[in-house]
Amino acid sequence: MTNGTSSAQPLLLKYTCLGCHGMGGSQKIAYIGDIPVPQVLHTDPSGDLAGGNFAYITGAKQGNGTNPNRFGHNVIELGEAFRETAFGNDPPGHVHSFYGVDVRKYLSCAGYMGCHGDKRYYDAPQGTAAIKGAHHNNLNGKIDPPGTANPPGYYYRFLQGVKGYEISDWQNLDSTHHNEYYGSTSAPVNYGSFCENCHTSSGGVLARYGTISNFCATCHGNFHQQSTVGTSSPWLRHPTDVVIPNTGEFGNYTVYDPSVPVGRTYVPSSPSSTVTPGQDVVTCLSCHYAHAGPYPSMLRWNYSNVEAGRGSVSGCKVCHRNK
């Protein structure tokens, strides 16, 4: 009864994660019965959902580059043929090693070496088992639960601990219709310097501060922590969870551009078309897709085409307006 395998699935499910959410069909929102199911691997020419599309890795959709592995997170559910071959054992920017474990073999949709679901425990399961109950106690719209110990269904897109506003059709379409990502107001949180910034006392993983960038940092901490990013200009790496200045070139980003989304320092009840420099923040997702996209480094635009001094206001220059 299961998708592509004869073995039984955890939670008595018929399908795996991708079995439901990566059917590879031509619709970005497919239906199982009368249930709309957001697709993260599809060939719909009308566009992708907010998190991107794993089809750029598999080749079902054509990306801009010669190495499809650079287009997204190579989750093992895609199959052995699409496993990452570069890097070492650890994700790029990881603060410390996975103690000899080759994470490329285990990066999963959910679980201890995945993104979704509850991974607060060292022995948390992988795959669908990690999101037990989430589909049935899922909240939507404004996601701002107290604390971090609720079931994964209580958090933004089942990302344990993360807050945000979930747009109902999973699509960042325009300035008025999009998810809202949660960010913090201060310089980069001191990710990585203290175990509890990313870990629980039981050895699991948790984005304690609830921001989307804090969540990314649990795997890519060196791209976010103060000691490797800096605390103010001149930065050593591009900062996240830092306020977009309301001075100079940054002050001109005032209308929400879904191709360069900003984070909010609060969890809104609805999407806003306004960007407020001096208040809104840079997030990892300001530049990157979460799942996969059509450009190398999972970027939202073709970085090799963004030029200083000429060209349109797009990509980096949506914020860096005068570059």
């Binding site: 790496r237 591009h238 030029e307 200083a308 001094g309 570059k323």
Partner: peptide, 15 residues
Amino acid sequence: YSAITGVCSTCHTMH
């Protein structure tokens, strides 16, 4: 626009 022109990635690396 400034006098300097060119692809950002020629001079910068984000991470």
